[in-house]
């Protein structure tokens, strides 16, 4: 097995709609791509050739959708072995998943909110540890967006995330847009939330746009440009925790590539701004 490719800078989610444009002329601002392993595992034909083209030229991040870390069904270890094979085959340096679940007595194929209870902390952390054991590497777990709070929750979202990451001893996949989405949906200060995260664990960052459905409801559809407050959150994350490889997510209303480039360059510009600085958190 050859060495994994090193990961840094700014990246873009690899969508099928964009692949031909990217193969014709990939913007220099893009340092890496991200895929959902579920969309490429066991796939042959034209699509696998296209994927191989990117995997040969760029570092790839695998951002999983279906592991269901918080789900009641047994952890799918056969599936995890397939993920491991995929990571090894394409020398993928990072695999991340969501702090959520997508199955309960069968798959629902969407990210659902885990109730924030002490029992759930122990349960999810054990599954993350088992995942890291099988994959033989650390994984990063993403703070998820959600729309319905569980009335049985005993902890705040922040305390839940902190407890799970500590107990699992895994990395943080920090999604600054998700912080903003939840801050609107549940009425809290996103900057205070950010400051409360275990930022020293940050391995990877997501930023994205969303859909403002109502003054107090955001749907996290990754279907628009990134808003200013979310850029400010990214800036603050770099200032506090240092620079980490950061991805622009765009999954809906995908515009021509040229319209995404300024957003990728914006990430790169913020990263340059903090490249030489010592993270404020470490100074404190």
């Amino acid at each position: 097995m050859s060495a994994r490719l090193s990961l840094s800078g700014a990246g873009l989610g690899l969508k099928r709609e964009l692949m031909s444009q990217l193969q014709a002329e990939a913007p220099s601002a893009i340092d890496f791509f991200e895929v959902a392993p579920e969309n490429w595992i066991g796939v042959g034909g034209r699509r696998s050739k296209q994927f191989a083209w990117f995997a040969e030229r760029y570092p790839i991040v695998a951002h999983g959708l279906s592991l269901s870390l918080g789900g009641p069904d047994p952890l799918d270890e056969v599936f995890l072995q397939r993920i491991k094979g995929f990571l090894d085959q394409h020398r993928i340096p990072l695999y991340t998943e969501h702090l959520s679940y997508c199955s309960a007595g069968g798959y629902l194929y969407d990210l659902l909110p885990i109730p924030f209870t002490e029992e759930a902390v122990k349960y999810v952390a054990a599954r993350i540890r088992r995942t890291q054991e099988i994959l033989e590497r650390r994984i990063a777990v993403e703070n998820a967006s959600f729309y319905a709070a569980a009335p049985i929750s005993e902890l705040s979202e922040l305390d839940f995330i902190r407890a799970v990451l500590q107990e699992a001893d895994c990395d943080l996949h920090l999604d600054v847009n998700n912080i903003y989405v939840n801050s609107v949906n549940f009425g809290f200060d996103p900057f205070e939330f950010l400051r409360g995260l275990p930022g020293e664990r940050t391995a990877y960052i997501h930023t994205a746009g969303h859909l403002r459905e109502a003054p107090d409801l955001i749907i996290d559809n990754h279907g628009d440009t990134v808003i200013d407050t979310v850029w400010d959150l990214l800036d603050e994350a770099y200032r506090l925790f240092g620079v980490a490889p950061t991805l622009l997510e765009r999954d809906l209303n995908i515009p021509p590539l040229a319209e995404l480039v300024p957003e990728i360059e914006h990430i790169a510009a913020l990263q340059r701004k903090y490249a030489a600085a010592t993270p404020a958190r470490r100074l404190a």
Binding site: G71, P72, Y101, A104, G105, L108, L112, I114, P115, T117, E119, A120, Y123, A150, I152
Partner: peptide, 17 residues
Amino acid sequence: MSLFQQYQAEFTGHIRN
């Protein structure tokens, strides 16, 4: 089944139907 999983069963049960 723990309390949070009972909740998940109800939550997904409602989504499904």
